[in-house]
Write a protein that binds this DNA or RNA. Structure first.
Lengths: 228, 228
DNA sequence: CTGGTGTGTCAACGATTGTTGGCCTACAGT
DNA sequence: ACTGTAGGCCAACAATCGTTGACACACCAG
């Protein structure tokens, strides 16, 4: 009962410092000759393997979203992408690297600076509702972020880099923006959790308009009401 | 790419129809002689193994809460409980049965029928805040409920049997109670997700009183405001 | 004392996991 | 044509998982 943390720590992939997760040129066969930052004739080489890489990434996104980090096996991802499991290792180093590459999220938070202040809440709720339902990426991000430290880190990054700035732009007092953004995130993520992950019946049965009518005043208050 | 569902289905333990999860007498060595519903002299036998069972259950709760269903291994649970892994199998049948026994949640939702209507929101928020921080059970329930279908089913059960009735008792229109309960659950679970699982900084830094001041009006509105 | 049942340990099974190295094919540069 | 290298597959590795069966000790009834 002494060692409890390590078993949870070494299973959590590091989302930063990924061995080979960038997208340009990272075949491990190149031993030490790729020190030159730009070779003479390869900056825009078509890379015949681009299709394979994309297939792996797409399959990985689906599997991570559907099964979570632990249960999404590299073998299953490779089978979905119709290639050999070892190709995944070659292109993305290891499972953590694959996850890091596959979990790049674009939330596309709407620009609120040209929206009437009193409509911002409804706009936000409706946007995230549609964003959540157009594909399963966000559901998967949440599923992984809850169980896996790297996934949680990724979600904190999305919050800090994509949610907070958008709200800070319309927040009357800039230093209150993080708190207000967190409150809004709690309501939106909470509804997504109940509706799309836990499938709590009343939350699933609500229509878009009902949902917006209920949640928009909450988000609006978190955004513009003065601090209690 | 044809078989996608089965790999996720056979890994999800059935929370109902657990082979041997009850607590009375379920040693598999009794082959067919236990058809008598009450033996003559064993209804209150002390069961020397009660301590071991409790230790297993406590360790299982901790591990499931900390690591989620897949990463919480039976071997690790047994090591924490200081017994052999095979004992876990003997007493709880299999991993799914152990989880079913370990994930019995008591939310202890407060009785609101004697609370002034306008204070119900604050009371609810404060109760769940304290409930969440007194132990890690709820965090673990959420961590498992997101990745695992049995965990999700367990959370739906808690919602239907422990949350919904309490709110239905104070809801002016009874048939609106499920919807209102789901909205309240979305806000409370969402804040718990951001604060205790994802550790989004602004959500972690908020004090209890601030949190209540922000969230209580929301919950109050979901509870008593007329339907939009 | 003898037998039976509950309690517990040990060692192993088969399956699956992430990961690795070797080998083969196809294409581009000369 | 020849050669080098990137793309791809195959077989296997060690580790770990859930699970099982055989075996040893402790107790209680007779």
């Amino acid at each position: 009962m002494a060692e409890h943390a390590p078993s949870a720590a070494d299973a959590a992939p590091a989302v930063t410092a990924v061995p080979a997760a960038s997208d340009a040129s990272d075949v491990p066969s190149g031993s030490a000759t790729d020190a030159a930052p730009r070779g003479p004739a390869d900056p825009a080489r078509p890379r015949r393997s681009a299709a394979t890489r994309a297939a792996i990434l797409a399959a990985a996104r689906d599997r991570f979203a559907a099964d979570g980090y632990e249960r999404a096996t590299i073998r299953a991802i490779a089978r979905d992408a119709d290639i050999d499991p070892s190709m995944v290792m070659r292109y993305y180093g290891n499972k953590a690297g694959l996850f890091a590459a596959a979990s790049e999220i674009e939330v596309h938070a709407p620009d609120l600076s040209h929206v009437p202040r009193e409509e911002a809440g409804a706009r936000l709720v409706r946007h995230f509702l549609e964003r959540w339902e157009c594909d399963e990426t966000l559901t998967g991000m949440m599923r992984v972020g809850v169980t896996n430290e790297a996934g949680a880190q990724r979600m904190r990054g999305v919050f800090a880099e994509q949610i907070k700035p958008v709200l800070a732009a319309v927040c009357p007092v800039p230093e209150e923006a993080p708190t207000r953004a967190a409150l809004i995130a709690s309501q939106i993520l909470g509804m997504a959790l109940c509706r799309y992950v836990l499938h709590i019946p009343p939350a699933v049965d609500l229509g878009h308009d009902e949902l917006v009518a209920w949640l928009a005043p909450t988000v609006q208050r978190y955004l513009t009401a003065e601090q209690p």
